[in-house]
Design a protein around this nucleic acid. Structure first.
Lengths: 237, 237
DNA sequence: GCCCAAATTTGATCTGGCGCAAAGTGCGGC
DNA sequence: GCCGCACTTTGCGCCAGATCAAATTTGGGC
């Protein structure tokens, strides 16, 4: 009945920084003691743009939650091609090889903005799943929404021509990471044409071509590593 | 402490048929009483080839486990194109909209062989997840392996030419549903060129062309709705 | 054993988008 | 403020694979 029995004796009170983190754990239904326990077990990772949280193929020693910022999960093929599988938004779990029954990470995690993440030793995964319903639910949500996203990607790649795939990818990024900008909504982190190509399974050339076309039509505004969408409703389909 | 309190009074003993089903529930760590309870709550669905377990967009009243046979999950786009998202093998959960937080099924489930499935009311999902660790684990496994499969598909579609996608799809089907046949291993259910096209995001014409090529090279043997692989190691990459 | 619908094969043509090449351009660093 | 690099744009030729069109095969139903 008492899950917070990690140490026999009473734990030291949380520092103010830890207390702040405890309040930001995106797991519902945890008691204060449980939040405290999780924060004590966690490591805080400040992330700068471009940082690698973990590499593809690395031992999955830890699993993560993103607190702030954004990152991308990238899988590299044996022939060196990069595919962006997913972008991670704050409050989402990532690096959860344990959930797939893997002992290595099958993709690399790269920060695309500065931000912060928390991580825990993989050995705690099963315990949190078992003892903390909110954590169990969060892990399930993570898997469920990834499934949705992946299924959508498969449909898109199987049925849509490149132009519309790019349009949908940009719409998706705007929906999840959009922020107000002069004259429209912009994707909330620096993103290159190459990145968009890796996200849509095409080449940076095609991405550039279609986006230039849209810019001429006044639908988007292109800058180096920035995309501002002026009229999302006019992006193809 | 006593989870099997569904009815106040003692439940009737299981019929032999029910007892047999109870033994086949693919959830580890259930007590006999729990197995009995699940079987009593379940509906048995005999499936004939071509049967629809549920349609895309239907209310997700129930979730399922496949006992025997095989089925495919198909999503149809707004423009009427079919994409095969996944094949389901025995012991796998499917129709688990609840796991994604959906209240409708986002794909149709069609039997590709005769077989049997069990289903439960969706209202029991949360209870089983909470009370039956083996069920919780199975649901997690289902989501995890789907994630893996989907991620693989995305990588393939983003980086491989059609011929190699078809080859990989056939390899995958052989690995999961292969059975001994005269002169090689065959895919364990009837499958058309069109089906393979919907599984690889291409056209039946391209599938037919490449498979004919492989047949001329003695790598496969093609029949109507049947594929026998003679030398899997010679399928492209 | 015949008939027919469904599945498959194959040919001919067309084109979206890739590969290659080269010229522009914005931006961080010094 | 200038330099250089990374990112971006654009043109051009080409080809994998889609589309269009038909002929051919297959096996189940009667």
């Amino acid at each position: 009945m008492s899950p917070a029995k990690t140490g026999g004796r009473a734990a030291a009170p949380l520092t103010p920084a830890q207390r702040s983190l405890a309040g930001r754990l995106p797991f519902a239904g945890l008691s204060d003691a449980q939040r405290a326990e999780m924060v004590r077990a966690a490591t805080l990772h400040p992330l700068r743009t471009g940082d690698t949280c973990f590499a593809q193929g690395a031992q999955a020693h830890r699993f993560f939650v993103l607190l702030d910022g954004a990152l991308k999960l990238v899988r590299t093929t044996d022939r060196g091609e990069h595919v962006v599988l997913l972008h991670i938004a704050p409050a989402q779990l990532f690096g959860i090889a344990a959930a797939f029954g893997h002992d290595t990470h099958h993709a690399a995690a790269h920060a695309v903005t500065e931000g912060r993440a928390l991580s825990w030793p993989a050995s705690l995964w099963a315990r949190y799943i078992r003892d903390y319903p909110g954590f169990n639910a969060a892990s399930r949500t993570a898997l469920g929404s990834r499934n949705d996203a992946f299924a959508g990607r498969i449909i898109d790649m199987a049925t849509l021509p490149v132009e519309r795939r790019i349009a949908r990818a940009i719409r998706g990024l705007i929906a999840r990471y959009g922020r107000q900008a002069a004259g429209g909504i912009e994707i909330g982190f620096p993103i290159t044409r190459q990145d968009i190509a890796e996200l849509t399974g095409t080449t940076l050339h095609s991405v550039s071509r279609y986006m230039s076309q849209w810019q001429r039509a006044g639908i988007v505004e292109n800058h180096r590593k920035r995309v501002i969408v002026r009229r999302a409703e006019d992006l193809p389909v």
